[in-house]
Design a protein around this nucleic acid. Structure first.
Ligand SMILES: [Mn+2]
Ligand SMILES: [Mn+2]
Ligand SMILES: [Mn+2]
Ligand SMILES: [Mn+2]
Lengths: 216, 216
DNA sequence: ATTTAAAATTAGGCTAGTCTAATTTTTAAA
DNA sequence: TTTAAAAATTAGACTAGCCTAATTTTAAAT
C-alpha cells in the first residue's frame, strides 16, 4: 500500500514521462512537485526499494511496471473524479482540479471502475485530457498547440495544458471552452500574439496563451 | 485548517458525546480511536490550544462551538458520501463506511451542500443514521434497541449501531435491512437470545445482535 | 585542460503523529 | 483509612516527509 505522498511522486514521474525528455532527473521532479531536491532523492530511494521505479543519476527515474500501473490508476481516478465534480456536482472546470488532487487518493479496488460506469464511460475529463481505460490504455490526443498553427488556419480546442484556476478563469472570460472553433486572423510578428476569432468573436491573445491550448 | 488527524479526533469526541456519558475521558477517546492514551493527551493539548475543545481531566473533553461545527460537518460529509456510494455507485452497506472515512476529509467549502443537492437531500445514510442539515441540525431518531422490546412486540428496523462489515454482512445473511419488520416471538431467558420473525421469516438471534439494532 | 555551473547527494534538523515505559493522580474497594 | 486499580501524564524514542547547508559529482564552456 502506498502513502498519499508516494502516489504523488509516482504521478509526477508519470507526468514528466509524457514529455519524452531524455531523462527524468531528481531536479525535474523537485520542480514539478515543488519540493526540495533533497526530499526527492529520499523518496526515489524509497520507491526504488519498493520496486516501483528504477533510478540512476545518469538515466534518471523510470516507472517500473508496478509503479506505472499505479500511476495510471491515480490519473484515471483523478480524471474520473473531475468528470463527476463537473458533470454531477456542477463545479466549474477551474474548481475541479484541486478537489481531484485529494479524491485521486481514495482507496478502494473497485472505485475507478464503478465511477467510470456511473459516469457512463467518459473519454475525456473537463480539461480535455484522456481518461485511461480500465486496462491502462490511454487514448491518443492531439499534441498540436494553438501556437503551432499559422495565420488563416481554423482549428478546434481539444484540451488545455495548464489547469491552474487563473488560466482557466481567463479562458472563461474569453469564452474559450473545449470544442471552441478558433480562426487565426493574424499573428503579430512583434510578440507572436494572435488575433483570433473564437466561435466568430474576435479577440487578441498572447503567445503564452497559445502555448497552453491544444487544438486539432 | 485542520489536519485529517485532528478531524478524526473531533469526530471521535462528537461521537462519544452522543452517548451522554458523564465525561469524555482521554482513555475513552483512546479506546474509540484505537490509539494510545499518551497520543490522545498530546492531541487534546493541541485541540485545546486551537480552541476547538475544552479539556480538563476532571471534566473531560468537550467540543467548543467551533470544534462542534467542524465535527458536524465531517459527519455530514461522511454520511452524504455513504449515500453517494450506496445509491449511485451501488456499493453495499458493509462497503461504504471505510471509503467514507476517507472521503469525509475532502476539503472544499461547498462540497457538502453540492453533494446534498445532487443526492436530493437524503435524510438518512445507508445505516439509518441521520444526516446533519446544512445548518447543523441533526434529525432525532429512535434510540430504542431491539433488545429493549418485549415478547410479542412488533417493530421496524431504523438503524444499526455498528457499521463493521462483519456485522452488516451477517445482517445481509439474515435479510435484515433498514425498514425490516420484526416480530418478537420469544425471548429465551437463559441467554436472552430472541426468536424473531423478520418480515415473516423466522430465525434466532443473540442478545448481542439485539443490542446493535435500533428500532421503532 | 581548466574553470564554472548545474545536478546529485549527504548530513543534520524540524514537525506531526505515533508508540512504550515510567510516574503521578484520582477513584474505588477493602 | 489504607490499599489497589484505573486514569492521566511525562519522558523519550521512532517514522514519514520535509527543509537548509554543505559537499561531491557531472556536464559545459572557455
Ligand atoms: Mn486535474
Ligand atoms: Mn483534468
Ligand atoms: Mn460510516
Ligand atoms: Mn453510516
Amino acid at each position: 500500500m502506498q502513502t498519499l505522498t508516494e502516489e504523488n511522486y509516482l504521478k509526477a514521474i508519470f507526468k514528466l514521462a509524457q514529455n519524452n525528455l531524455d531523462k527524468i532527473s531528481a531536479t525535474a521532479i523537485a520542480d514539478e512537485m515543488e519540493v526540495n531536491a533533497a526530499s526527492v532523492i529520499d523518496m526515489l530511494k524509497k520507491l526504488k526499494e519498493k520496486k516501483l521505479i528504477s533510478y540512476d543519476k545518469k538515466i534518471g527515474a523510470k516507472l517500473a511496471p508496478q509503479g506505472n500501473k499505479l500511476a495510471i490508476n491515480i490519473v484515471r481516478k483523478h480524471r474520473l473524479w473531475e468528470v463527476f465534480l463537473f458533470e454531477k456536482l456542477k463545479y466549474t472546470w477551474d474548481e475541479v482540479h484541486e478537489m481531484a488532487e485529494q479524491l485521486e487518493h481514495i482507496k478502494n479496488p473497485e472505485l475507478a471502475d464503478r465511477l467510470d460506469k456511473f459516469l457512463e464511460f467518459p473519454q475525456f475529463d473537463p480539461h480535455g485530457d484522456p481518461i485511461p481505460k480500465a486496462n491502462g490504455n490511454i487514448p491518443e490526443v492531439s499534441k498540436i498547440l494553438l501556437a503551432d498553427k499559422k495565420q488563416g488556419d481554423t482549428c478546434k480546442v481539444v484540451s488545455v495544458k495548464d489547469t491552474s484556476p487563473a488560466f482557466l478563469k481567463y479562458l472563461n472570460q474569453l469564452s474559450i471552452v473545449i470544442g471552441s472553433k478558433i480562426y487565426i486572423k493574424e499573428i503579430i510578428s512583434f510578440d507572436n500574439s494572435l488575433i483570433i476569432l473564437i466561435d466568430d468573436k474576435e479577440c487578441t491573445v498572447s503567445e503564452k496563451l497559445a502555448n497552453s491550448i491544444f487544438v486539432k
